[in-house]
Simulated scan of single mutants.
Amino acid sequence: MDSLYSTMNQHIKGKHLSFEERVIIQLRLKDGWSLDVCSNRATTAGEFASSRDVVCTKTLYNYVDQGLLGIYNYDLPEKLKRNTKLHRIRKNKKKLGRSIEERPKEINKRNEFDHWECDLVLGHKTKDDEVLLTLSERMSREFFIIRIPDKTSVSVMQAFKELQRQYSEHWNDIFKTITTDNGSEFADLSNLEKASNTLFYYAHPYTSCDKGTVERHNGLIRRFIPKGEAIANYSLQDIIDIETWCNSLPRKILAYHTPDEIFERELDLIYQAA
């Protein structure tokens, strides 16, 4: 990525990037942002001059393909691993509770805050390794990473009880529904319904796309903790830093705002109404 400095002043026919634009993009790429986010977040934040046309995302990717920016496709975090997968709903797996088919269709639109997805991220897959419990709010894309001792239902339940204590009287307003899979580690979650108004829904067997938001965020974790690497090798501060990075990453679907910005806005509305 440092090679971008050597091409800062290289002229590109037609539209071209200013020195300032090149610096901004180079710095943001080092933070793990995509080209689209680099350009549009900078525009939203007023880092690019409003009086001139900013090079569009497609043009930026064309510049990379043409070798005009001093960076390459393998420098871009997602471009080389995108593919299309066929998803099938497979049967013959136990049901732990309320099916996702019973979940209100309005939740699919992501217009309402307080609907979450939940999953686990494993490291070395040994009994003595720790596990990451992950939750993502569907509208804001806020992402929680909670370190737990193992993948047992007891550890998962304990983490949720701690989270419930943290948000105390606002729990029901912030966590209206939680969607997860049919893994045995989530077998006891429906018991939380007895102590709150939160409703739990279980995805179709072997259908990760039913909770695509949290799956997508789990993929972001893998930028920092590769598959097969022990979670125990990472400190609590490492996990906090990963969570902070995820929630500070501007998203195109959020008009280049960050999950933290949307999440804090929604929390303010809930606290003010209390």
Rank of each mutant, 00 (worst) to 15 (best):
S3N: 11
L4I: 15
L4D: 04
L4H: 13
M8F: 15
N9E: 12
Q10W: 08
K13R: 14
S18E: 07
F19V: 08
E20P: 00
R22N: 14
R22M: 15
R22E: 09
K30G: 05
W33I: 05
V37P: 02
C38N: 13
S39P: 01
T44K: 15
E47M: 15
F48D: 03
F48G: 02
D53F: 02
V54R: 14
V54H: 14
C56R: 01
L60F: 11
Y61A: 04
Y63E: 02
V64L: 03
V64D: 06
Q66V: 02
L69G: 05
G70V: 09
I71F: 06
Y74I: 08
P77N: 13
L80P: 01
K81V: 14
R82N: 12
R82M: 14
R82F: 12
H87W: 11
H87F: 12
R90H: 13
K93Y: 01
R98Y: 00
S99A: 15
I100V: 13
E101T: 03
E101W: 00
K105N: 04
E106I: 14
H115S: 09
L120K: 00
V121A: 12
L122P: 01
G123D: 05
H124E: 10
K125C: 04
T126P: 03
T126A: 04
K127V: 13
K127H: 15
E130R: 14
V131P: 04
L132R: 08
L133E: 11
L135P: 07
R138L: 09
S140E: 05
R141S: 11
R141V: 02
F143R: 03
F143E: 06
I146T: 13
R147P: 08
I148M: 12
D150M: 08
D150P: 08
S153D: 12
S155L: 10
M157P: 01
M157F: 14
K161A: 05
E162G: 02
L163P: 03
Q164P: 00
R165G: 03
Y167V: 04
E169V: 15
I174T: 05
I174H: 05
T179A: 07
T179R: 00
D181N: 03
N182I: 10
N182V: 10
A187V: 10
L189W: 10
N191R: 12
S196Y: 04
T198C: 12
Y201W: 04
Y202S: 01
P205F: 00
P205I: 11
S208A: 14
S208P: 15
D210S: 07
D210K: 00
G212C: 13
T213E: 07
E215F: 08
F224H: 15
E229V: 14
A230T: 02
A230S: 15
A230P: 06
N233Y: 10
N233V: 01
D241P: 00
E243Y: 02
W245D: 00
L249Q: 06
Y256P: 06
D260T: 13
I262D: 03
I262S: 01
F263N: 11
F263S: 09
E266Q: 13
L269D: 07
L269I: 06
I270S: 02
Y271E: 06
A274R: 11
A274F: 09
A274M: 09
